[in-house]
Design a protein around this nucleic acid. Structure first.
Length: 598
RNA sequence: GGGGGCGUAGUGUAGUGGUUAACACGCCGGCCUGUCAAGCCGGAGAUCGCGGGUUCGAAUCCCGUCGCUCCCGCCA
C-alpha cells in the first residue's frame, strides 16, 4: 500500500507516529516558509504542514503542488496547538508534519470545483462525471447506495432469499414500455430486448421451486425521462411462493423500516405504514401516490354547491362531474396574483378554472362566487371543508379525474409554499385494492391496470364474469413522500382465471401463446401460489439521500435525451459492425447535419 | 410529440439597443512561518451556445437551430 492510514482516521492518539498518507490536494495555503496542504481521500481530509526550515526539499516540492494533484506524504502526526485546532474537522486536532512528499501525479485545473461551493451546471457535471463524482456530495450518495444494497442483501439472505441473476438479453414483449432492442448477429433480422423488469423470469423461478428469490436488477425502458426516471434503472426485485398479500407487506415494511433507521439519518414518521385503498387515496388526496407528510386533504362538496346558483358548479354536478375543495390554511389574504399562480397550476393540470372563497380573519368573505351562494349554502360549504377565519378555499369542478389531478397538484404546491414538508421525514403508506382493469376508450376493451398476471381479490373473482370494472386486485403499491417506491401483486396461478383475464383484455389464446408461451407452459407444471414486489432502488436512495432527482444517486446517469455526455453515447458505429448484424440504417428525411434521424 | 426555464472567461452569476462586457470564486506571478473558504499586491483569461435577420450600432430585438433542465403526453 502507498498509505499506512486514511486521511480520515488520525487523531491525537496517533501523536508521534510516523505515517504515510496518499490522496488528492483539496486545498493548499501558502505562507511563505510554511505551506498547508489539505490532503483528501475517500475517508476524509487531513492537514499536512510543510516547513521550509525543517524540510527544505519537501517545501520546494510543495511549492509546485496544485489543487487535485495526487500526493503521497510521509511525516509525523503531531497535536496542534490549542489555538490552531479546527473544530469543524474530525481530524482537526492533529496534523501531519511532512518529511517527504511525492507527487504521484499532477493534475490539470479541473473544470468544476471539487472542494468549492459552486455547483456547476449538469452539462459540465455530466461531461466530467469522474470529477463530479469526486465531490463530497456524490461520494456520500454512492456510498449510501452501497450501504443500502448491502443491507438489503443481508436482510433478505437472513430470511432465506436467494439472489439469482436473470438475463439482460431477453425477449421483446410489446406490452408496457418501449423496449430497448439488441440485434442478433447469429439470427439475421431478429432481436433481443433488454428487460423492462425480470417479471416473467421471477415467476418462472417460483415454478422452479426457489420459493424466495430476489435480485438487485437493472431494468431498461425506452421512454422519455423525468427527474425520477432514467432509461436504465435498478429495482430491488423479489418474489415468494406460498404467500399472501399480508406476508409481502410485512416483509417490505420491516425491511424499509430497519433500512431507514439503520443506514439513513431520515426520520420515519408513519409506523406501521398506513394502508389506504386506491379509492380512499383518490378521495382524500386526489392521487394514488400521496405525500402523507402533511394534511391538506380534499373534500367533496358537489352536493352542497349543487344548491348554489353558480352554473359552472351546478352544470358540472348535473353532468355527473364533481366539485371538490382544498383548504389553504392562512391564505385568505393571498393577492390576485398569488391566486392567479394557483389557478395556473390548476389549468396546467387540465382544470378549466379555479374557484376561491377567502374567509377573512374577521369572518367576512371575499369570493367571486359569493353572489351565487345563499348565506346558508355558503355557511354549509365553509363548515363542510372545515375552513376557519384566515383560510382560502380552493375548488375545482370537472370530471372526477381532472378534479383530482388539479387539486393534488395544488395540494403539493401549497405544502411547498406553506413549508409543511419536513425534508428529514420519510412517510410511507401502502395503497391497496386497485381496480384490476382500466377501461381503454380507444381500443374499446379492458387493460390490466398493473399487469396481466395480477390476481383479483379472491372475493371478487365472480365479478370477472359480470362486472369486470368492479373487480379489485391483489396489487399493492408502496408510496413514500409522494413517490411510488415499490409495487407488486399476488399473481394468478389458476389457469381458468388467467384465461378469463386474457379474454377480457382482448388477448386470444393464440396471441397469449405467442408472447408468453414459456410462462403459460410453465404454469401447467405445478406453479405454486406466489407473489412479489419490485422497489425502485434509485428513488429509494434518492429519498434517503435527500436528493431532488435520481441522477444524483447514479454514478453515470443519462441526460433527458438519454445520452451519456461523458462517453458520447449513443454513437454511430462502423459500417462493418452493421453489416455483421444485417442492419441497414434508414433515417427519416430530415435536414442534414443533425445526424439524429429517427 | 407539446409547453416552460436556462445557455455571457475554467466555475457561478450581473448586464435587456450605445465607450474597452462587470463581479465573486478559480487560475498565473509576487509578498508572507499557524493557516484551514488564509491574507495582501499585481496579472492573464469571453469571437456573450451556434446560424441567419432587423438596425448607423445587437450579449440585449426577431427567426431558426443545438444543448442542459422541469412538466404534459408516454412510462402494463
Amino acid at each position: 500500500m502507498l498509505k499506512t492510514h486514511t486521511c480520515g482516521e488520525l487523531r491525537t492518539g496517533h501523536a508521534g507516529q510516523r505515517v504515510t498518507l496518499a490522496g488528492w490536494v483539496n486545498r493548499r495555503r501558502e505562507h511563505g516558509g510554511l505551506i498547508f496542504i489539505d490532503l483528501r481521500d475517500r475517508w476524509g481530509i487531513t492537514q499536512v504542514v510543510v516547513d521550509a526550515s525543517r524540510t527544505p526539499e519537501a517545501h520546494a516540492l510543495a511549492l509546485r503542488v496544485r489543487g487535485e494533484y495526487v500526493l503521497q506524504v510521509e511525516g509525523v502526526v503531531q497535536v496542534r496547538a490549542p489555538e490552531a485546532v479546527n473544530p469543524d474537522m474530525p481530524t482537526g486536532e492533529i496534523e501531519v508534519q511532512a518529511e517527504r512528499i511525492t507527487i504521484l501525479n499532477p493534475a490539470r485545473t479541473p473544470p468544476i470545483e471539487i472542494a468549492g461551493e459552486h455547483e456547476a451546471n449538469e452539462e459540465v457535471r455530466m461531461r466530467y462525471r469522474y470529477l463530479d463524482l469526486r465531490r463530497a456530495r456524490m461520494q456520500r450518495n454512492l456510498i449510501l447506495r452501497h450501504q443500502v444494497t448491502l443491507y438489503i442483501r443481508n436482510f433478505l439472505s437472513e430470511r432465506g432469499f436467494v439472489e439469482i441473476e436473470t438475463p439482460i438479453l431477453f425477449k421483446s414483449t410489446p406490452e408496457g414500455a418501449r423496449d430497448y432492442l439488441v440485434p442478433s448477429r447469429l439470427h439475421p433480422g431478429k432481436f433481443y430486448a433488454l428487460p423492462q423488469s425480470p417479471q416473467q423470469l421471477k415467476q418462472l423461478l417460483m415454478v422452479a421451486g426457489y420459493e424466495r428469490y430476489f435480485q438487485i436488477a437493472r431494468c431498461f425502458r425506452d421512454e422519455d425521462q423525468r427527474g425520477d426516471r432514467q432509461p436504465e434503472f435498478t429495482q430491488l426485485d423479489l418474489e415468494m411462493s406460498f404467500v399472501e398479500r399480508e406476508d409481502i407487506l410485512n416483509l417490505i415494511e420491516e425491511l424499509m423500516t430497519r433500512l431507514i433507521e439503520d443506514v439513513s439519518d431520515k426520520r420515519l414518521v408513519t409506523r406501521p405504514f398506513p394502508r389506504l385503498s386506491y379509492a380512499e387515496a383518490l378521495e382524500r388526496f386526489g392521487t394514488d401516490r400521496p405525500d402523507v407528510r402533511f394534511g391538506l386533504e380534499l373534500t367533496d362538496v358537489s352536493d352542497i354547491v349543487a344548491r348554489s346558483e353558480f352554473r359552472v358548479f351546478t352544470g358540472t354536478v348535473e353532468a355527473g362531474g364533481k366539485v371538490r375543495a382544498l383548504v389553504a390554511p392562512g391564505c385568505a389574504e393571498y393577492s390576485r396574483r398569488q391566486i392567479g399562480e394557483l389557478e395556473d397550476i390548476a389549468r396546467d393540470a387540465g382544470a378549466k378554472g379555479l374557484a376561491t372563497v377567502a374567509v377573512r380573519a374577521d369572518g367576512t368573505l371575499r369570493s367571486p362566487l359569493a353572489k351565487f351562494f345563499s348565506e346558508d349554502v355558503m355557511a354549509e360549504l365553509i363548515a363542510a371543508v372545515e375552513a376557519t377565519p384566515g383560510d382560502l378555499i380552493l375548488m375545482v369542478a370537472d370530471t372526477p379525474s381532472l378534479v383530482n389531478e388539479a387539486l393534488s397538484a395544488l395540494r403539493v404546491e401549497l405544502a411547498r409554499r406553506l413549508n409543511l414538508v419536513d425534508p428529514d421525514e420519510m412517510s410511507f403508506c401502502w395503497i391497496l385494492d386497485f381496480p384490476l382493469f382500466e377501461w381503454n376508450e380507444e381500443e374499446n376493451r379492458w387493460d390490466p391496470s398493473h399487469h396481466m398476471f395480477t390476481s383479483p381479490r379472491p372475493e371478487d373473482t365472480p365479478l370477472l364474469d359480470t362486472d369486470p370494472g368492479a373487480v379489485l386486485s391483489q396489487q399493492y403499491d408502496l408510496v413514500c413522500n409522494g413517490y411510488e417506491v415499490a409495487g407488486g401483486s399476488i399473481r394468478i396461478h389458476n389457469r381458468e382465471i388467467q384465461e378469463k383475464v386474457f379474454a377480457l383484455i382482448g388477448l386470444d389464446v393464440e396471441d397469449a401463446r405467442e408472447r408468453f408461451g414459456h410462462l403459460l407452459d410453465a404454469f401447467e407444471y405445478g406453479a405454486p401460489p406466489h407473489g412479489g414486489i419490485a422497489a425502485g432502488l434509485d428513488r429509494l436512495v434518492m429519498l434517503m439521500a435527500g436528493e431532488p432527482n435520481i441522477r444524483e444517486v447514479i454514478a453515470f446517469p443519462k441526460t433527458q435525451r438519454a445520452a451519456d455526455l461523458m462517453a458520447s453515447a449513443p454513437s454511430e458505429v462502423d459500417p462493418e459492425q452493421l453489416e455483421e448484424l444485417h442492419i441497414c440504417i434508414c433515417l427519416d428525411k430530415k435536414p442534414a447535419g443533425s445526424g439524429k434521424g429517427s
